[in-house]
């Protein structure tokens, strides 16, 4: 037996004893982090795309595969990616959180959405030189920015409140754990254990809850997305950055909560 083994064993016996309480906390944390993840994804999309140099390339009539390929190459040379090609059949109204102008969908048989990155532009004249079928190139909407700004502020405040809530709940459950294992902890104290020795299993419990919540939130998110497949919900389609951030945030809330409950415990040690 060594310390690490003892701590892990104790942590496992603690969560086995209080499975129900730990699971409830993970589920509550999971739902909260799911809301965070959705928020984060929306924030990310509305922050990222409108500020990019989105351009709509309007194409007259049908475009052949070779022409499309040629155009892609031309764009590529200029470090411009084609994000999506919209045909009337697609009937897409939103794209990466941006509303596609109505008139555009009506008149143009084919629209190419090009993303020029920050500070770059797709120049119509230049493209038209190579491909006759391009009628014009228009920059993306800027109106969206203002609206998104308001929503963004609200979402940021909401997320912070939510994370605060998860921390409070986790602190609460770790405090309950201290109470639940009071007898054992008292014995360890009599044997001369310092607060680190006593607290490590509870610290692990906090990390376990946090990680569990983060993973659960990601699973919920993926399931939710799968259930809403038909809906053009690019806005809330989880990407790796969002999933990673959610899990990391879960771990972080676990660490913070454990730390805070252990520190607050130290003060009311019996004297």
């Amino acid at each position: 037996m060594n310390k690490a083994k003892y701590w892990i064993g104790t942590f496992l016996s603690y969560i086995r004893k209080d499975t129900f309480r730990v699971m409830i906390t993970i589920v509550i944390g999971g739902f909260s982090l799911l809301i965070f993840a959705i928020t984060f994804q929306i924030l990310k999309n509305t922050t990222h795309y409108p500020e990019r140099n989105r351009s709509y390339i309007f194409v007259k009539g049908k475009i052949s595969k070779t022409e499309l390929k040629k155009m892609t190459e031309i764009l590529k040379e200029r470090n411009i990616k084609i994000y999506r090609i919209i045909t009337p059949e697609y009937k897409l109204r939103y794209l990466y959180g941006e509303k596609i102008p109505e008139e555009l969908l009506k008149i143009v048989p084919l629209t190419i959405v090009a993303d020029g990155g920050i500070g770059k532009r797709v120049f119509p004249a230049e493209l038209q030189k190579y491909i006759e079928k391009i009628s014009s190139v228009a920059p993306g909407e800027s109106k969206i920015r203002k609206m998104a700004g308001m929503i963004r502020t609200f979402l940021i405040i909401f997320s912070i409140t939510l994370i605060g809530g998860i921390i409070v709940i986790t602190i609460f459950t770790i405090q309950l754990s201290f109470i639940s294992h009071h007898e054992e902890i008292e014995i360890l104290k009599l044997l001369g254990a310092d607060s680190i020795f006593i607290s490590v299993p509870l610290f692990l419990e906090g990390i376990f809850i946090g990680t569990g919540s983060g993973l659960l939130a990601v699973v919920f998110f993926i399931l939710m997305k799968a259930a809403w497949q038909k809906y053009p919900a690019n806005l809330i389609s989880p990407d790796f950055a969002t999933m990673g951030t959610t899990i990391l945030l879960g771990i972080a809330t676990g660490v913070i909560s454990s730390f805070l409950s252990i520190v607050s415990r130290r003060h009311d040690e019996t004297g």
Binding site: M1, L191, G192
Partner: peptide, 24 residues
């Protein structure tokens, strides 16, 4: 007695040594 119920006799005796940082 104040023994740890969920620990073996061996572990009960080993715990103060762990606390004191004695090597495995």
């Amino acid at each position: 007695f104040k023994l740890l119920k969920h620990r073996t006799i061996y572990e009960n005796v080993a715990i103060p040594l762990l606390i004191a940082g004695v090597k495995k």
